[in-house]
Nucleic acid binder design. Structure first.
Lengths: 204, 204
DNA sequence: GTCTATAAAACGATAGAC
DNA sequence: GTCTATCGTTTTATAGAC
């Protein structure tokens, strides 16, 4: 009787989740290629062989699973920042301010769980690239849905979702590199303005 | 009599430049950690030891030099897209369309020469992080200068420069990951609108 | 079923031949 | 001054002990 199909078990699931959390954290902050599986195992306080037990496909399978895991986690956060009914301009401003605080609070160590890895594997690993693409699309879907509920057309809502995404990802990249939260504040104001413009256009 | 101080020499400089070009290309598309120096040397058709001859500091020095080299090259391109006197809204639209065409023309292999590496080293290699930061700041300076010349205040010009940067970098990240030029077109329209808004505000 | 000890390969770096 | 052959380490992956 196999119980390794779900991660909802009582005891044996713990190691797998710790592995995913460590992998998401290390891969996103140091890069996928630069992080050895040994470092992931050490951070998760897991024995060597457990990686190949939970992820028979080795580092690639762990990488793809970490992208899915990190993508799901941030989607949940996004849904909590944009609860149904909340003013979307306000929520947008809030999401950038939160990211800015997180960056400053972690000495600019906070990183997008997907971006670093996505840029590395976009042209070299199709399996991982698709996992990253699915994660990004799930975020865009959440944003689009909220914008539609706020009154935008489907087409306009997707555009504004993409604009918001680009500003936050570009902001994190610049903020981490120059070690300043300035880009997050600036990008946040621009995103809020674009969301407001999208609402105004659709309201005609 | 040493002639290794400049890269302008007749024959011996060729290898160094080829090394920098290969490094910039491979590091930005596959990642710094995932790319071995052997692969860089092979792409540059340079013998093994030449790397340590031109870059005694090894891989780190090559990485930092590649960031400076790639940063300078794109700054030159940026200056050609935003020549003095050209309408900055038009130039902004143009820069995103060019990036979109480049992405489609290279099967989404085109990548920012800095972004991938910057995300990898932002929290692990201070020397390379500073090289990446200098490159980004040099691009922002070009944009800001053109925006000031077009009539924006210093403060507003830097803000709009940052917004444009974030949209293009976020756009390239998303486009490469989902293998579609859609984000570049969408981000381009948003950037042009933000530049136009910046001009209108300053003209107020 | 869980983990440790080992193997084969690739890495960055260097010493020394030309 | 230019390059090749080699060193020691670290990497991923596996085979087999418990």
């Amino acid at each position: 009787m196999q119980v390794t199909t779900t991660t909802n078990g009582t005891e044996p699931a713990g190691t797998k989740v710790r592995l995913l959390e460590s992998a998401t954290d290390l891969f996103s902050r140091q890069g996928f290629g630069a992080t050895g599986i040994k470092a992931v195992l050490a951070a998760a306080e897991a024995p060597y062989g457990s990686l190949y037990h939970f992820f028979p496909g080795g580092k690639q399978e762990l990488g793809a699973a970490a992208l899915t895991y990190g993508g799901d986690r941030y989607r949940t956060i996004l849904e909590s920042i944009y609860p149904e009914g909340r003013d979307v301009v306000e929520a947008t401003t809030d999401s950038f301010e939160r990211a800015a605080q997180l960056l400053e609070g972690t000495d600019f160590g906070y990183a997008c769980p997907i971006a670093t890895i996505a840029l590395e594997v976009a042209n070299s690993d199709e399996v991982m690239r698709e996992a990253a693409a699915d994660a990004f699309e799930s975020w865009l879907t959440v944003l689009k849905q909220r914008f539609v509920e706020a009154g935008m057309t489907d087409e306009r809502a997707r555009e504004v979702a993409i604009e918001t995404f680009c500003l936050i990802e570009g902001g994190v990249l610049l903020a981490r590199t120059i070690r300043s939260a300035e880009p997050m504040h600036t990008a946040g104001r621009a995103a809020s303005a674009l969301v407001a413009a999208g609402l105004a256009d659709s309201a005609g």
